[in-house]
C-alpha cells in the first residue's frame, strides 16, 4: 500500500463522491415528486392516465435499471434530446425510483380510512385542507419505512452510472486501476468513500424512522 498515493487520490475521490451525492439527492428528489404524482393518479383512478401510470410502474419495476439507463442514454439523442450522462443518470434514477415511491405512497394513502375523509368534511375542511392536514401526514407515517428503504435502494443504484460515462466512484476506481495498476489504493479509497456516504445515510434514516414511529404511537 502506497500511502502517499492515497493522499494524491483523496481530492479525486472527494470530487467523485460529490457527483454521487448530487445524483443521489436529485434522484431521490425526482423520485418522490414523480412517485407522489403517480400515486395520486392511481389513488384517484384518473381515467386513462391511471392505466398509463400502471404500465409505467410495471415496466420500471420489472426491468433492470442498467437497461433503463442505456435506453435513456442512447434513446434520447435519437428523438433529438441532447442530455449529458449526468442528466440521463438523474432521469434514469427518477424513472426507476418514481415507480417504487409511487407504490410506497399509494399504500400509505390507502391506509387512511374513509371515515377520516368524512370527519374532515364534517369539520368543514376543504379538499386541499383535508389532503394537507389529515390525509398526507397519516399516509406519510405509514409509507415512511417503505420510502426510506427506497432511498437506500436508489443511493445504491447510483453505483451503476459509470456505464453511461458519468465519472462516479466506480468509474474513477476503474480509471485509476486501468491507468496506474494501483488496485489496492483505488479499492481502499472506493470502500472509504462509500462508507463516508452510506454510514450517515443509514444512521440518519434509522433515526428519522424512529422519530416518526414515536410520532404516530
Amino acid at each position: 500500500m502506497n500511502w502517499d498515493l492515497l493522499a494524491t487520490y483523496t481530492p479525486m475521490y472527494a470530487d467523485a463522491l460529490w457527483v454521487v451525492v448530487q445524483l443521489g439527492f436529485w434522484g431521490v428528489f425526482g423520485s418522490l415528486i414523480l412517485g407522489a404524482l403517480v400515486a395520486l393518479v392511481r389513488h384517484w383512478k384518473v381515467p386513462v392516465v391511471d392505466r398509463i401510470a400502471g404500465g409505467y410502474i410495471e415496466v420500471a419495476r420489472n426491468t433492470p435499471s442498467m437497461v433503463q439507463l442505456y435506453f435513456l442514454y442512447f434513446g434520447l439523442p435519437l428523438i433529438g434530446v441532447k442530455a449529458s450522462g449526468f442528466a440521463c443518470a438523474i432521469a434514469g434514477l427518477t424513472f426507476l425510483g418514481g415507480a417504487y415511491m409511487a407504490e410506497a405512497i399509494r399504500s400509505g394513502l390507502e391506509a387512511v380510512r374513509e371515515g377520516q375523509y368524512r370527519a374532515a368534511a364534517s369539520l368543514g375542511l376543504s379538499q386541499t385542507q383535508t389532503m394537507r392536514l389529515v390525509v398526507l401526514p397519516q399516509a406519510l407515517a405509514v409509507a415512511l419505512p417503505a420510502i426510506t428503504a427506497n432511498v437506500i435502494f436508489l443511493i445504491k443504484e447510483t453505483s451503476i452510472v459509470s456505464i453511461i460515462a458519468v465519472v462516479d466512484l466506480m468509474a474513477l476506481t476503474q480509471n485509476l486501476i486501468g491507468m496506474f495498476y494501483t488496485s489496492n489504493e483505488a479499492y481502499l479509497m472506493l470502500v472509504i468513500s462509500y462508507l463516508v456516504l452510506l454510514l450517515p445515510v443509514s444512521i440518519g434514516l434509522r433515526a428519522l424512522e424512529r422519530r416518526f414511529r414515536r410520532g404516530i404511537a
Binding site: I155, S159, M170, Y187, L190, Y194
Partner: peptide, 22 residues
C-alpha cells in the same frame, strides 16, 4: 442485514473478484 442492504452490489462484486485472486 443493514450491511448487505446498503452496500452497492457492484462494489462488492469488484472487491471479491479482485481480492480473491490478487
Amino acid at each position: 442485514l443493514e450491511f448487505v442492504r446498503i452496500a452497492p452490489i457492484v462494489v462488492l462484486l469488484y472487491l471479491l473478484y479482485y481480492f480473491a485472486s490478487a
